[in-house]
């Protein structure tokens, strides 16, 4: 059941992305920015947490979940450290994913060459 919920909710969130690809001329980077910022806003309004509790990875793996993690990090950090937390909370909470992308990106570039299509 848990997997089914993750599959269904995650799939539906991705469908929103697909509609943006097909129906608008938005470039991928713009769509991704839209998802992250929406995640921050929905989380700030208290709407994303219930979705994450319901769908688990179905809500946290899409990039809107990345926005949710940013917002959650800021919230916790502001509660602990005041205004300074607004500056440290977001990146601290998402450091793992961003650092992993840089590290694995670098390693992949060392090991692989792009191929013709």
């Amino acid at each position: 059941m848990e997997y089914l919920k993750a599959f269904a909710v995650g799939g539906l969130i991705c469908c929103i992305g697909q509609i943006l690809i097909d129906r608008t001329k938005l470039t991928p980077a713009r769509i991704l920015v839209g998802f992250v910022v929406s995640g921050v806003i929905l989380s700030a309004l208290g709407l994303y947490e219930p979705l994450a509790e319901f769908a688990g990875a179905g809500a946290t793996v899409p990039l809107s979940g990345f926005g949710h993690t940013l917002a959650k990090g800021v919230r916790a950090s502001v509660a602990d450290n005041g205004i300074l937390g607004a500056f440290t909370g977001g990146l601290s909470a998402t450091a793992g994913g961003i650092t992993a992308a840089i590290v694995f990106g670098f390693i992949a570039a060392l090991l692989f060459d792009p191929k013709d299509k």
Binding site: P28, P114, K115, K117
Partner: peptide, 11 residues
């Protein structure tokens, strides 16, 4: 456009 290994759909 994009790097060769970037995953995107072509209209």
């Amino acid at each position: 456009r994009f790097p060769l290994e970037y995953g995107g759909q072509r209209p």
